[in-house]
């Protein structure tokens, strides 16, 4: 099951619970709806513009999307943490 950009996990659980009551789905049906996330559907897609941002770097210097973009674009990485 695909999820929209703004996920509402609780709604999903609620809907799944309702359908369990109504249709007698097993617990594994709920599990399917909770644990299947299509990460490729999240965030800006190919051809779409990414939002601008204003964030400080490791030296406290504020960077924006424009300041990161080179003449041929940029590589923008999102990662969990530098800390662990």
């Amino acid at each position: 099951m695909k999820r929209s950009k703004n996920q509402k996990p609780r709604t999903t659980i609620l809907v799944a619970t309702l359908s369990t009551l109504l249709l007698g789905f097993s617990m594994s049906a709920i599990a399917q709806s909770i644990s299947t996330i299509d990460v490729d559907s999240l965030g800006p897609q190919v051809g779409e513009y990414v939002p601008n941002f204003n964030l400080p770097d490791q030296n406290g210097q504020v960077k924006t999307l424009d300041s990161i973009l080179g003449p041929n674009g940029a590589m923008l990485l999102f990662h969990r943490s530098a800390d662990w």
């Binding site: 973009l69 674009g73 999102f78």
Partner: peptide, 13 residues
């Protein structure tokens, strides 16, 4: 969710 975007000069994916 960790991942990488490659952007063009206008900020398009």
């Amino acid at each position: 969710f960790p991942g990488t975007f490659m952007l063009d000069a206008n900020g398009r994916v």
